[in-house]
Design a protein around this nucleic acid. Structure first.
Lengths: 209, 209
DNA sequence: TAATTGACACCTAGGTGTTAAAGT
DNA sequence: ACTTTAACACCTAGGTGTCAATTA
């Protein structure tokens, strides 16, 4: 299933006439498995992480494109797909449920992307830069653990329109959205000269339903 | 709109470990404009062709891929889109209505595809091969000129299911399908050593509705 | 007990020919 | 008189959370 809300970034500092691939992968934040404690509304450590899964990379469908093209548009990863099926053969990114993950954006010069593949780790070295935004760390689930996440998904995802209660109290939602850095700024800026100042902490959430 | 029925080909003779792009373009068969004479069921010359349109190329979405990958599957061009809008900015292939056209399949070695672009002519030379199947020549229309084509489209295109008359006499259809080489063989074989023997004549049809 | 799966109704998104109206 | 366009109902294809059943 798709990751929602999706990562969206703007890029500056590229060579306008150079061709680049842009890709995303998702790496474990730590070696732990988590459980959600409802009465304290917190994720707590619940043992060690499951064994690693096959590496997968989402190559942005506009790739390859010129620096000019990439910089002119907002780059959205809304078609990136996640799965908890370790035997997946459709190129989806494989994750364990109840673990914490960090999405990363990779900018790869075309001449360095020769062994770029959806089923191999992203290459490193000259001509490849990686960006992580800590406020986009999220915890995977197969069923939502609190009603705020459910409301965020239903109210903001067009495909969940059928579950919207138009008479619902919107007061609580606005405050909620504020607290989810992953959602509100919703648009990060990547620079090749500088990574923006320390971002505020936030949590987002993806499910495997 | 999409071309229907779509071109489908199988390829042999590629280097399994070489990367290739596969593309399609559509070129005028002659310099004439046509009209359909209903009582004789024939296309007749009706003047000279309209002025040329901007060149467009459909790059198969699986491109680039290895020779092994291309040869293992049937290569379908069912997502190729046509338009009669000369100002089109969505990369569709631009054609004039009431003209005759020939689709061409291009196989391009990756290292020869550096200036391959949806809005530039297909490169020629070493490492690029083009294939034309005369039985896939078709005449463009904005409204169907005979009921046989309408029936072929409705009966074979999944998206036209709503117009199917399940009680319809199927006898006529089978004979019709036989006469449309573009539809029946429906799968052409491209070889790098040899182009198959002279194909039988046929007509297909695309509309701009 | 907690986590996961699959059938389901309800959406978005977009591909059909039909038809009436407009264009040439 | 013929060609083209745009609104329309009817499809395919696939993305939602829900809920009941299943799994571990």
């Amino acid at each position: 299933m798709r990751m929602f809300p999706a990562m969206r970034v703007k890029i500056s500092g590229l060579d306008p006439h150079q061709q680049y691939y842009i890709a995303m992968d998702i790496v474990p934040v730590d070696n732990k498995r988590y459980r959600y404690v409802y009465h304290s509304s917190k994720w707590m450590v619940a043992g060690n992480a499951d064994s690693p899964v096959p590496p997968r990379v989402y190559i942005h469908p506009d790739s390859p494109a010129s620096g000019e093209t990439w910089m002119r548009q907002v780059i959205s990863f809304d078609k990136l797909k996640l799965t908890n099926n370790e035997l997946d053969d459709q190129g989806h990114i494989i994750l364990h449920s109840m673990h914490k993950y960090q999405p990363r954006v990779h900018v790869i010069r075309k001449d360095c992307g020769d062994d770029l593949s959806p089923i191999k780790p992203v290459p490193t070295g000259e001509g490849v830069k990686a960006f992580s935004f800590p406020e986009t760390v999220f915890t995977t689930v197969t069923a939502y653990q609190n009603q705020q996440i459910t409301r965020l998904k239903i109210d903001r995802n067009p495909f969940a329109k059928g579950f919207r209660d138009s008479g619902r109290n919107r007061m609580g939602l606005e405050a909620l959205v504020e607290s989810y850095a992953f959602w509100r700024p919703s648009l990060r800026t990547l620079t090749f000269e500088d990574i923006p100042g320390i971002p505020k902490q936030g949590i987002s959430n993806a499910n495997f339903g």
